[in-house]
Computed example of a mutant assay.
Amino acid sequence: MVTVVEKKALYEEFMQKARRIGEAAELEAIEADHNSTISQRIADIIREEEIHRLILPKEFGYPQLDWRTFVDMVSTIGYHNLSASWLAYFFSVHNAWVSYYPKHIRDEVINQGGFVADVFAPIGEVKPVEDGYIVSGRYNFVSGINYCDWVGVGAMMQFEDTDKPERVGILLKVSDLEVVKTWDSLGLRGSGSNTLIVDDIFVKPDAILRFSKIIEKSQPAYEDFDQDYLFYNTPFYPGFYVGFAAMAVGGAERVLDEFEKHTAGRVRFSGINEKDSPTSQRVLAELKVEMLSIKGLLSEYITMMETDKGGAYEGAKYKAIRATIIEKCTHIGVKALLTLGGHALLKGHPVELFTRDLIAVGTHITSLYEDGILGYGRHLFGVDTKIQG
């Protein structure tokens, strides 16, 4: 009974943290949209609440969240502001791949306390030199880079124990790099997903993370590791990507509440209250039921993560479920906007803002609906899709 009470208290503590971040970011939503980044104040609140510490091995002394608490926390922030949810999620989950590095590296990064960004598109050029490598590349869409001290970048490399190149992550200090402010997007404008220039930066071999090794086995290469750590006990990529679905659910729930509120207060030219219109009544019911199906899919996704403890798993199924969740959430935004009519189209209206942000979540490469559904269909017929989650 004590354990149950403690878990409830911990859950509520992190929901309060999420609400504090989300509500503060909501007050600055228009400003962040204009500036293409959250403010330093919001970044500081995320740091004060130690959100970036929540998914870490126990050796660092912070509470380890279970998947459902983590997902609900991301959703709660998303209910108030999707850009803040996007970054709080990233600043937390990016420590997961840091946890696969040797002790001296993970200690340096985590104990230093800075936020970590990443962009693992394998576009970097890596040249071997004495005692290490020289890395160069231009990386777009580096979310939260304005406030990060560390970043992981992607490249393809050939190793002696494999017969073909493989994708790797390379840990770098942001202070050694150039950040170019290029972010001017339809949605998620507050994410500050700018461009990063890596120009002939030297790295040692132990700064190279081989994702193929993580895919083979969720546990790290070193022996003395935290047996209870989330990412050591679930397929890496499904866990790494779950936040996209979580934030979309929070954003779609907000749209539903806004749709109901604005419909109740809307009067047509004819003088009829819109809440008495069969059209809006039907749309609200349809979208409410759709949200029930979305939450069911998200729960199934989490159950799969809790069940898959290592070895083979259905990566294509994870991706299809996640993409479907996000597609359905985006549909809720678009349908609500079109049903509310022109006043909801005005810049800064909550439904306009959240719908743009939901569309942006859906454009992420891990969220693309057509790719997810096609991949799962191919998988069901025995095709090796190589989808990792």
Score class of each variant (00 low, 15 high):
Ile145Val: 13
Gly362Arg: 04
Asp200Trp: 00
Glu286Phe: 05
Gly78Gln: 01
Glu260Trp: 12
Lys386Ala: 11
Trp150Tyr: 14
Ser299Trp: 12
Phe231His: 06
Thr366Pro: 01
Tyr133Lys: 03
Val283Ser: 05
Glu23Asp: 06
Pro165Met: 13
Asp357Gly: 01
Pro350Lys: 03
Tyr376Arg: 05
Glu28Ser: 05
Val116Phe: 01
Pro235Asn: 00
Leu256Val: 02
Arg106His: 12
Lys317Thr: 05
Phe354Ile: 05
His80Gly: 03
Phe236Arg: 04
Gly22Thr: 06
Glu108Leu: 07
Ala121Thr: 14
Leu65Tyr: 13
Leu171Asn: 04
Gly250Tyr: 09
Val142Ser: 06
Val153Ala: 05
Gly296Thr: 14
Glu370His: 12
Tyr241Glu: 10
Ile302Leu: 11
Gly377Trp: 08
Pro238Val: 08
Phe202Gln: 04
Pro57Arg: 03
Glu223Phe: 11
Asp308Met: 11
His343Tyr: 13
Val142Asn: 07
Arg356Tyr: 03
Val142Phe: 01
Glu216Lys: 14
Asp118Lys: 11
Gly342Trp: 07
Lys347Phe: 09
Ala9Leu: 15
Tyr133Met: 05
Asn81Trp: 04
Lys103Gly: 00
Leu297Glu: 12
Ser277Val: 00
Gly271Pro: 07
Val116Pro: 02
Gly132Arg: 11
Arg268Gln: 11
Leu87Val: 03
Glu28Lys: 12
Glu314Ala: 15
Gly113Gln: 03
Leu10Cys: 02
Thr182Gln: 02
Phe240Asn: 09
Gln227Met: 07
Ile21Lys: 05
Gln158Lys: 15
Phe240Thr: 00
Val4Phe: 10
Asn146His: 13
Ser99Thr: 07
